[in-house]
């Protein structure tokens, strides 16, 4: 499927008709450039601005984690996961954070998600325990 078509479908899943100015500018930039820095206050629509380009890069035939999102707080990590789920992409997502049962996370990660979201502490713990492999 064409990227534009995927985006249009995702937006309709989210019930959004138009992107805001930040998203209009950020999405093509993230797609075109290897390194992008977004400076914007919270509440400006950043999450979708990076999740759409993430989606366009995921490949259903590639095994393992294809994208890692690090978030400072559990709430933010959960929030990003909710947006991803609302996008109904069909790609598996897992979210790992302190205070979440380790065994559940290990079980989830045994079938690696395409998108992994987490707080630095917990992701590092999984790396140390070798319960997740991020060396594609």
């Amino acid at each position: 499927m064409e990227t534009d078509q995927i985006f249009a479908e995702t937006l309709s899943n989210l019930g959004i008709s138009t992107l805001n100015a930040l998203q209009e500018a950020a999405i093509p930039a993230i797609q075109a450039r290897p390194n992008v820095i977004l400076l914007a206050p919270t509440g400006s629509g950043k999450t979708l601005a990076f999740l759409l380009p993430v989606l366009s890069r995921l490949n259903a035939d590639t095994p393992g984690v294809q994208c890692l999102i690090l978030s400072p707080t559990r709430e933010l990590a959960i929030q990003i996961e909710r947006v991803w789920q609302a996008m109904s992409t069909g790609f598996k997502v897992n979210t790992c954070y302190g205070g979440h049962p380790m065994q559940t996370e290990i079980k989830n990660l045994s079938q690696p998600p395409a998108l992994l979201i987490g707080t630095p502490g917990r992701i590092l713990e999984h790396l140390t325990r070798k319960t997740v492999d991020l060396r594609r």
């Binding site: 993230i30 290897p34 390194n35 992008v36 820095i37 977004l38 400076l39 914007a40 206050p41 919270t42 950043k46 990076f50 380009p53 890069r57 890692l68 690090l70 978030s71 400072p72 707080t73 707080t119 630095p120 502490g121 992701i123 590092l124 790396l127 991020l134 060396r135 594609r136």
Partner: peptide, 29 residues
């Protein structure tokens, strides 16, 4: 926020563990 919460070293270690990363996005408020 991650930096101000002191996650600098943990993030550095995680990023070291990654294989080749083709694309990086950094968002800051």
């Amino acid at each position: 926020k991650s930096l101000s919460m002191g996650f600098q070293e943990q993030m550095a270690e995680i990023i070291k563990e990654l294989g080749s990363v083709e694309k990086r996005v950094l968002a800051s408020a």
